[in-house]
Design a protein around this nucleic acid. Sequence first.
DNA 1: TCTTGACTTGGAGTTAACTCCAAGTTGTAG
DNA 2: CTACAACTTGGAGTTAACTCCAAGTCAAGA
Lengths: 133, 133
Amino acid sequence: MTIKEVCEKYDITADTLRYYERVGVIPEVTRTPGGIRDYQETDIAWVENAICFRDAGMPVEMLIEYVKLYQEGDSTIDARTNLLKEAREAILEARKKYDIALEKLDYKIGRYEIAQKTGVLTWTCDEDDKKKG
Amino acid sequence: MTIKEVCEKYDITADTLRYYERVGVIPEVTRTPGGIRDYQETDIAWVENAICFRDAGMPVEMLIEYVKLYQEGDSTIDARTNLLKEAREAILEARKKYDIALEKLDYKIGRYEIAQKTGVLTWTCDEDDKKKG
DNA sequence: TCTTGACTTGGAGTTAACTCCAAGTTGTAG
DNA sequence: CTACAACTTGGAGTTAACTCCAAGTCAAGA
């Protein structure tokens, strides 16, 4: 699979893919004899992981560390487990914050929609932002 | 409430609070006659909102836009509602990605824990990353 | 009143994560 | 064999969101 195909498949730029490889977010990608990237199943799995975890806010540094440990072999299994657990906690924490924001948004949207429907503001925005967020 | 107290209450730096005010993420804060920030209930509500929405990944630009619309008065209620709905969609989208990452993490952690308990790798990490992510 | 520490401003600097660029190489279609 | 698009590299540039700094002002205690 060419870099272009991978880009299209995952809606990501070639620059980002090359950057991920360069800094070690993914291991070195398989090449053709001419030196052109030819993504194999394994390479693609790493790309998929990288995108998935980046999408969840996991820092590039952490992914680099994971790949480094992975390449050091079985002796790093404990370290890798810990790293993954740490990432899990961070993601759970972040998700909690998303839920709180959603609640707040829903409350505000609800208020605004009533105002729109009735054409009347039964409350001042000031009051709303002051008392209920 | 002084800037320091607000910092401590929300675990945020004074620089960030001043930055938020400067760029318009929150409206101008009440001052003492001497020009020193003296956060009132309303000011604090804005700070709380800003932190909450930033924590959910809402871009600073969007918060600035909301405050701008808010200050223009009731004629911008439709625009504000749309903005909030847009933010809501973005947060829902992001949260979905967090859930996917969590699933992947849980799967990997489960595998690693079995390896740790039994002291045996019944699978190669390569295989794991290749086939199951 | 003096000191001392927290506050003020505008502007410059930093960080993470890309994103772009120039100059050169590869590979496919005609 | 020749174009020509797509690929390669190292390195520089950009963006969002802070974060820090210098020079000066304010306010509470001795």
